[in-house]
């Protein structure tokens, strides 16, 4: 029996605001899963706290809604325990670039074979619109009538500086392209970072579908764009236009587990190995 999007639907009604980018994001994700033939029981998703996390009980998969900022290490733990599962860490820009920015850096450097799906709506929306490091500097935000006094983080350049094995950018205004990006990200053997520029109709009104149509371009539209080229990627990130698509891939990297020496010849997963283990061979160290 082939999978359909319905298989991933939970019985719960979404609680997001009308027009929220999360609707499109979830639809894109489910479409990608169907097309990759990954059943709900073959996927683990960790969720953060925030509007993305309110999607945790809206999708029927093995899931864990954990703590703010921590969906990446939670996903890594799940991945290391059982690599038969596809693992996705779902996270917002607040959690990813504030509370848990360390995890993003180390996950990319370790190159765990997981996908990090960043919902970048450029604010802390669930706590009613505080500034994040990706909010425009001069923009009035919660408690900041004159905008925040800190400089912004160029999220794309920051991620690219980590030399990820896969970095793509999609937008909730183009769910079909986003679905293709998610598919590629899941298929990549390594840490795939997918940044989704996402509509927040409540606290980021500047970013609308109309604005997106005018200002967002696709890397596919560029002649000779090579996403294996760091030079190409750097150039389009310096461009005044916003580009979506697979920005950069480094296919020379091994994934983390492939580099763990003592697990190289092991055919089982950690979840298969929970049984009494003999320690007699270790007692020689204690004579």
């Amino acid at each position: 029996m082939s999978l359909t999007i319905k298989d991933y639907n939970s019985t719960n009604t979404p609680t997001w605001c009308p027009g929220c980018g999360n609707f499109a994001l979830h639809a894109s994700l489910k479409k990608a899963l169907v097309e990759l033939n990954i059943s709900p029981s073959e996927l683990f998703m960790s969720f953060d706290i925030g509007c993305n996390g309110n999607g945790a009980d809206k999708i029927n998969v093995y899931g864990f809604k954990g703590l703010h900022g921590r969906s990446i290490p939670l996903a890594v733990g799940a991945h290391l325990a059982n690599r038969r599962f596809t693992v996705i860490a779902d996270i917002g820009d607040g959690a990813c670039f504030h509370e848990g920015i360390d995890h993003l850096i180390h996950a990319v450097k370790a190159n765990y074979n997981i996908t990090i799906l960043i919902h970048n709506n450029q604010n802390f929306a669930l706590t009613t619109g505080q500034a994040t490091v990706s909010t425009q500097e001069e923009k009035p935000m919660y408690g900041l009538p004159k905008g925040r006094p800190e400089r912004s983080l160029n999220v794309s350049k920051f991620i690219l500086s980590l030399d990820p094995s896969f970095y793509a950018r999609g937008t909730s205004t183009d769910p079909l392209q986003l679905s293709e990006i998610i598919k590629s990200g899941i298929e990549n053997n390594g840490c795939s970072v997918i940044e989704v520029i996402q509509i927040c109709p409540k606290y980021n009104k500047d970013f609308s579908p109309e604005w997106a149509i005018q200002n967002i371009k696709k890397t596919d539209s560029l002649e000779n764009y090579n996403n294996l080229s760091l030079k190409n990627a750097t150039e389009i990130l310096d461009n005044s236009s916003i580009y979506t698509g697979i920005i950069y891939r480094n296919n020379t990297l091994k994934s983390f587990y492939e580099r763990v020496h003592n697990r190289k010849d092991t055919l089982t997963e950690l979840v298969d190995e929970v049984k009494i283990q003999d320690t007699a061979h270790l007692l020689k160290y204690f004579e």
Binding site: F44, S46, F64, G66, L67, R70, P73, L74, A75, V76, G77, A78, H79, L80, A81, N82, F85, D102, H103, I105, H106, E269, L270, V271, E273, V274
Partner: peptide, 21 residues
């Protein structure tokens, strides 16, 4: 792990999946 929060989160993820960490 990169810090203690990571370590314990990884353990929680691994335990959820059914191994012992």
């Amino acid at each position: 792990a990169e810090n203690e929060i990571t370590a314990v989160q990884m353990a929680m993820g691994s335990m959820y999946m059914g191994t012992r960490a």
